[in-house]
Write a protein that binds this DNA or RNA. Structure first.
Lengths: 376, 376
DNA sequence: GGTAGCGTTGAATCGTTGA
DNA sequence: ATCAACGATTCAACGCTAC
């Protein structure tokens, strides 16, 4: 069983890390305030939606729709909901690391208030993501469009935080090599994944699918990161985080949910290191100066480089700069200069002769990075 | 050319209807305040998105992205944007009929503020609709998810307004007989539809596709309705409204946009009455009492009806009621009674024998409605 | 006359490092 | 703190040109 940590205990010990991979039992804001500053890498929050249901709803066959009418989803007014939202978002902001990001999921009942509050509290919106449901509940009365999606907001702690985690290359590779869009298609949580009590009834009214959390976590965290879920419920965030080699912290008030989550997470087997390795792009690779190619003999002073269509050419000088016409400079500056542009990636612009064909000098950088033998 | 109405003229005349199918030139809020109370059936609004762009953005090939940096999209702060939003939404609310609805489109930069303000002003959110773009602009730097959608909010004037227009059956019929979802897929406006100036450059930076407006208008208005667009731009709302047999009112400040819209709308040919007939659901169809079936001889007193599995049966009485066991009543009440339910649709529950098969008596009601020959 | 190829473009809050 | 240098990065649709 995943450990459960009563809030009172957390307050007393205060030792760093005792709360890692536990479910803190207590009020959301109070629990957040007992956690240290800047201690989590990412937050996933599925707050109450503030559904405004006017009575009961029946299906066309007269069966009763089991609506979300729990006490925790009742707010007296938008004002009350805003105050609640402000409180938990502020508390989240404090425990978030400067380069951390937060996800909040909601429906049209609450997401506009959440989004506006995020902006008011100086979070910086990165994307709004649409979860399109393959199997949404129909609109039984035929008075509106079928409510077939929910919205997630992804935001960084503030506008200046540029180095948040975003595993762009991995997402692209997993998406047929085109960049991941802001609309995601997943089934709702059902079947074996849906937690049911001994009475056969669902334990939690709004359990989210693990696939959704898996994409969120794979996209915006690294293995070993700490992911906080202030409305833990039955622990989907914790289960997926554990499986994906991340740490979690959950906060939850209801003992029934804690029991279900605890048992559920205990049964999760984490993936191995190899499976968790994230595909990275060139951004993650160590820098190699062009001069290194000259020094290692992969290119030689006096050798001629051209662009891929041989429109421009330049000569390599012994100091690792290029010269063309009266101009000289780095591979980047000279590439920009000859084309009349402000900037240019010299590694992909300049090519060398390899037999009959032209190859970008970027290929030679790869030789250095991989520690391969010199070519000559 | 569609008529252009300077705001000063509108203020002087004040005669009802002079502003129908015109473009009012002037400030959005001032123009709205010159229009009478409760005078429009629907509003489509595409307000400034309040994009906050840092600098210039280049594509991987170093070409410059032509960003939306127009003066009208600049706001000093969220507070300023909220004040602007509040002003035009309040003005819209006054001119909207009590059963009217409003659509607002936006992106994550502004839509959360718009949605929260709609709620604060006592509009009642009916749906949020996601416009998924088939061909969105990529994320060039690989720092976020591709921004592949925009969001529309559909709201009624207030919570009590239950008889707003929603052509549920027509939408369903047009959608392979399944109800229309909240996620719509359309291409962005390009090709021949995109208005270009003599210089070949786009007239308006954010022209919306006509297909999007067509679905909005077909879903939530009736032929002859008045549709207001307070940010008319190049008049997509007007062009589609005219084509679909609706009236429009546009408000726009920029003369260049007005000129383009005016010419564009003048060239639109409205569809004929037959094409515009909206498929209506059973709710709008004339009521047919069960007794009418008895009177017309489609069913006969003494005839036996059963449910589709022959679990229960009842006898038709001459007064148009049913009897079973010791109970009697309407087709609905008796259907509920035998099943032990609170309610039941007798039209679909009770079946009659047609040769070897059972058919719902609803089929016979259709015979009456369509004026078909008696079957016997 | 097709069609392959190349260039253009669309509501975008779009970088990191070291001197 | 500011500045310069490095160098990483795009998808679908439309239209024009060349063959």
């Amino acid at each position: 069983m995943a450990a459960v940590l009563p809030l009172a205990d957390l307050r007393q010990q205060g030792r760093p890390g005792t709360w890692l991979n536990t479910i803190i039992k207590g009020d959301c804001v109070a629990a957040l305030e007992a956690l240290p500053d800047r201690s989590v890498d990412a937050i996933f929050a599925d707050p109450p939606y503030n559904l405004q249901l006017g009575g009961t709803l029946h299906r066309p066959d007269q069966s009763l729709v089991d609506a979300v009418d729990d006490e925790w989803d009742q707010f007296a007014s938008f004002q009350a909901y805003d105050a609640f939202t402000r409180a938990w978002l502020l508390a989240c902001r404090r425990v978030l690391k400067p380069n951390g990001t937060i996800w909040v999921i909601g429906s049209y009942h609450n997401i506009f208030r959440v989004g506006a509050m995020l902006q008011d509290l100086n979070f910086w919106l990165l994307n709004d993501i649409v979860w399109r449901k393959t199997n949404p509940m129909p609109n039984f009365k035929g008075r509106r469009f079928q409510n077939a999606h929910e919205t997630m907001i992804w935001a960084s702690r503030d506008a200046k935080a540029k180095s948040y985690t975003f595993n762009y290359e991995a997402l692209k590779a997993s998406n047929d090599d085109v960049q991941m869009r802001s609309d995601w298609l997943f089934p709702i949580c059902s079947g074996g994944e849906r937690l049911k009590g001994e009475d056969g009834k669902k334990v939690h009214p709004t359990q989210k699918p693990e696939a959704l959390l898996a994409r969120v976590i794979m996209a915006s965290t690294k293995p070993g990161d700490v992911i906080l879920d202030p409305f833990f419920g039955t622990g989907t965030t914790g289960a997926v985080a554990k499986r994906l080699g991340r740490n979690f912290v959950g906060i939850e008030r209801e003992q029934d949910y804690i029991d279900a989550a605890s048992e559920r997470i205990a049964a999760v087997e984490p993936l191995g290191k190899a499976e968790l390795t994230v595909m990275t792009g060139k951004k993650a690779e160590p820098r190699v100066a062009f001069n290194t190619l000259v020094e290692s003999g992969l290119v030689k002073p006096g050798q001629v480089l051209t662009d891929d269509k041989r429109r421009w050419s330049a000569i390599i000088r012994a100091d690792g700069t290029l010269a063309a016409g009266g101009d000289a400079g780095s591979i980047h500056r000279l590439g920009a200069k000859v084309q009349g542009l402000d900037a240019c990636n010299g590694w992909t612009f300049w090519h060398y002769e390899d037999g009959k064909s032209l190859r970008p000098i970027d290929n030679l950088r790869a030789v250095i990075r991989n520690g391969l033998a010199k070519l000559d």
